[in-house]
Design a binder for these strands. Structure first.
Lengths: 124, 124
DNA sequence: ACCTATAGTTTCCTAAAGGGAACTGGTTTC
DNA sequence: GAAACCAGTTCCCTTTAGGAAACTATAGGT
């Protein structure tokens, strides 16, 4: 008789797995956290501001990532009727609910650095 | 005069950005969360158990992801001296510190589903 | 006239991620 | 002796992600 999966087949489990997949897909790619993190700090930003703040990103990537975020209602996009056209990007209230996740991830990463540093020193 | 970045250039900010990059690199790929989540539930698992529990993963990917996780001290690997060789994978204490992150991500994803569902019903 | 700025899009390319299938090599079971 | 189970590895292939450079069109500055 073949062995079968048992742990991850309960409904509570598979909905958890789906939830994680959903979240990670929404936040997928090299730049999403970076962009959201930047918008969380500053409330309003224009396209060119983001190009300058998000270190290393190019116009194509920024444009694409912002479209993704807008589609998922995490970021709002407002075209202003100014002389050279300007566009305002803001994080939505919904987008702000990501802050706890981002904080957890940032904190974990900082603890990680500390541990690596400690381990490296103990080896000497 | 050229405009310059200002927000993300403070030291506290750039170390936060680095921390997020670190964490996401350690947890990168399609399967890491899935594997860690499974190991968090069950403490000890063998290679073939994981193949069965982590839905859709192949031997090559599982092997590679487990090596990554072991390198980062999130998972331990113990070869048992049994007749057909068996290997025991366990999450480390350090790996368990990821639980809050995973919980946040899972919870956010479940709230997301609820909102999408609500929005879809209101449109009718 | 020419440079800069605005917000992108388009084209073309490379690098990285992911996956299927076969294979290793040992052991146990039928 | 053939088949199956364990824990992988190797080879080859496809798909996706990411990025650089050029280009759209409009307007203000020097």
């Amino acid at each position: 008789m073949k062995k079968q999966a048992s742990l991850n087949t309960t409904t509570s489990c598979s909905s958890r797995i789906t939830a994680i997949k959903d979240t990670m897909e929404i936040l997928s790619g090299k730049w999403k956290f970076h962009i959201i993190g930047t918008l969380l700090q500053s409330d309003k930003m224009r396209f060119m501001d983001l190009i300058r703040e998000v270190d290393g990103i190019g116009a194509k990537m920024l444009s694409k990532e912002l479209q993704d975020l807008e589609m998922n209602h995490l970021v709002s996009r407002t075209v202003l009727n100014t002389k050279p056209i300007t566009v305002e990007y803001k994080i939505t209230d919904y987008g702000k609910t990501l802050e706890p996740i981002i904080n957890e991830i940032a904190n974990w990463g900082m603890e990680y650095r500390k541990l690596i540093y400690k381990a490296a020193n103990q080896e000497d």
